[in-house]
Simulated scan of single mutants.
Amino acid sequence: MKSLEKAADYLSQGLALIGSIGLFAMLAHVTLDVALRNFADTPIPATNEIVSRYYMVLIVFLPLAWVERQRTMITVEVMEMLLTPRGRRISDGAVALLATGIYGFLGWVTWSVALKSMAIGTFVDVLGHKIAVWPSYFLPPAGFVLAAAMTALRLAIIIAGPSATAEEGPET
């Protein structure tokens, strides 16, 4: 179980890194566009479309797995302090199961939308030039499925109990 958790950590950190790189690329792209528009009167064509169809989708959906792995998704714990440790474990397991189902469903739905977009070759027209945007439709299902994998791992850890990771010994 410990090696699976370590692989999940590396995967989620890698996805967060890709999201961070996308954020910096968007920052550079928009800054360059604004500078060129104001100083040389030559904006970069399709900046709005690329930012909204690629960068923002990448930044939002790929790091979902990292957010789930870090357990930093928004939570409400009003009744949590009233529960026994076993009750908290059951509650955490139910939340992980529900989240896995929701993420899995969202991944399935967005996957079918991505396949349809690819099949018809979805694009945007910018100044008479076709810019393919169908590849960006594959980012949400990837993010949702990987987030589902992280919540499923959390559920497996909860079911296995706290002794399951301790039995495998210290990390090397």
Rank of each mutant, 00 (worst) to 15 (best):
V113N: 08
E68R: 12
N38K: 07
W111N: 04
Y103F: 14
V113Y: 11
A96L: 08
A16D: 10
R37Y: 08
A25Q: 10
G14F: 10
V145N: 13
A65G: 08
I90D: 02
I90H: 04
S3D: 15
D9R: 11
A119E: 11
Q13L: 12
Y54H: 00
D125W: 03
I159G: 09
R71P: 04
V133M: 00
L146F: 07
L97Q: 03
F123D: 02
L82E: 02
P135H: 04
L155K: 05
H29R: 01
Q70N: 09
S163V: 15
H129Y: 08
Y137M: 05
G19S: 09
A46H: 00
G128C: 06
P85L: 03
K116Y: 13
V34W: 06
L155I: 03
M118S: 08
V67K: 06
G161M: 09
A65P: 04
G93D: 04
T47P: 00
V67A: 14
A40G: 05
M118W: 13
A149H: 06
E68M: 09
I74Q: 08
G87R: 08
A142I: 15
T100M: 12
R154N: 13
T47E: 00
Y10Q: 08
L155W: 01
I18D: 01
W66H: 09
K2A: 12
A25Y: 14
G121C: 02
S117V: 04
K2V: 15
V78N: 03
Y55G: 00
L97Y: 05
D9T: 13
I159K: 03
V34C: 01
P162F: 14
F39S: 08
V109P: 02
M26S: 10
T84R: 01
M79T: 11
R154Q: 15
F24V: 14
G128N: 08
Q13D: 12
A147T: 01
S20C: 12
G19D: 05
M118H: 10
F39T: 12
F105D: 05
P140N: 07
G101E: 01
R154K: 10
Q13H: 13
K116A: 11
K130L: 05
N38A: 14
P45S: 01
M118K: 09
K116S: 11
R154G: 14
L146W: 03
H29G: 03
G143C: 09
S12N: 05
W111D: 03
L64D: 04
A25F: 15
F105N: 07
